[in-house]
């Protein structure tokens, strides 16, 4: 499959994502305003990544693209409806958009991706949608490639090792730009469903070799595919044939959310239990201390009594002695 020809690509992305509507609704030239608002904190954060985006692309090597990328990301940071701030990974997405769109269009397409394709939920602190997508991916792997799933389980190869990189950068740090663009084309068309289809198709083509390989070779491959070993036309073709049920995806999403809630409740319970135990311990300690104090007091009292008795004895003795003396004097 060829994907979209370069000269149409920008426009197609712009329209498919719904960015064209967003830009039409904008009456006040929002992008131009937003990119000018000073935001030193955001700027510092973003600037760290400017030179570290699409590092093999000429525009970034010659440093002609960095200022455009900065403008788009700063405008995004100043955008009122931005719920997720700036996360590494966005720099790659924005940079890819800028290869085919002007800054204003790229900005609105980024906004559309965040709002219409769940990207905002993915980049939010804690990466809530990444967690969900990773869980969905685990279930898909279990369903479509059970042998591989078991092999990964056996090796303790958890999918979060590669899904964060795959999903947060739209594969741009895993594949070449050429392949990434094709994947993006399909993503704009079909969203997450297609992304999962591609992942299944890709791993299916590697299944035989992965079943024989040790942990380190599999992880290295998953994070940095050698594209000469990947038959992409075949993978795209097979991906389309994989039937994914939206119901399943929804079911797994809910399942994950419930599990997470249960976990959180359990953690809270544990925390509460610990707190109660600590309280009990404190009480016990206090009681012990009180007991000890009482005992000491009793002892003191006893000592006091003994003292009193002794004093009385002494007094008596003295009295007796005095009587004896008196007797002596009388005598």
């Amino acid at each position: 499959m060829r994907g979209v020809p370069n000269r149409f690509r920008g426009n197609i992305w712009f329209i498919l994502s719904g960015a064209d509507k967003l830009m039409k609704q904008d009456q006040e030239n929002l992008f131009k305003k937003l990119k000018k608002i000073k935001n030193p904190k955001a700027e510092e954060l973003i600037k760290k990544d400017l030179d570290r985006t699409l590092t093999t692309h000429r525009g970034y090597i010659e440093k002609t693209e960095q200022s455009r990328l900065l403008d788009v990301l700063i405008a995004w940071m100043n955008y009122e409806k931005n719920e997720c701030g700036y996360s590494q990974g966005m720099n790659f997405i924005a940079a890819i958009l800028l290869l085919f769109l002007d800054e204003e269009q790229a900005f609105w397409t980024l906004v559309a991706l965040m709002e219409n394709y769940n990207l905002s939920e993915m980049y939010k602190p804690g990466f809530p949608y990444l967690e969900i997508a990773t869980y969905q991916w685990d279930r898909l792997l279990e369903k479509f490639l059970p042998k591989l799933y078991n092999h990964f389980q056996f090796l303790f190869l958890t999918s979060d090792i590669y899904t964060s990189r795959w999903f947060l950068t739209m594969f741009s740090t895993t594949f070449s730009i050429h392949t990434t663009l094709k994947l993006m084309d399909f993503f704009f068309f079909d969203g997450w469903k297609f992304r999962f289809q591609i992942c299944i198709s890709l791993l299916k083509s590697f299944q035989k070799s992965f079943l024989l390989l040790p942990f380190e070779d599999i992880v290295s491959t998953l994070l940095n595919f050698d594209e000469s070993t990947v038959d992409f036309p075949k993978i795209f073709k097979n991906a389309k044939k994989i039937k994914l049920s939206t119901n399943d995806l929804e079911k797994w999403e809910n399942e994950f959310k419930e599990k997470k809630k249960e976990n959180e409740i359990e953690i809270e319970k544990k925390n509460q239990n610990q707190k109660e135990k600590e309280k009990e311990r404190k009480k016990e300690n206090e009681n012990q201390n009180e007991n000890e104090n009482e005992k000491e007091k009793e002892k003191e009292n006893e000592n006091g009594k003994e003292n009193e008795i002794e004093i009385e004895k002494k007094n008596q003795n003295q009295k007796e002695k005095e009587k004896e003396r008196e007797n002596e004097i009388e005598n």
Partner: peptide, 15 residues
């Protein structure tokens, strides 16, 4: 050494 190595997103692995 590459003065501009790509930002690491998630995690990378080498052995």
């Amino acid at each position: 050494f590459n003065i501009n190595s790509q930002s690491t997103v998630g995690v990378d692995f080498l052995s």
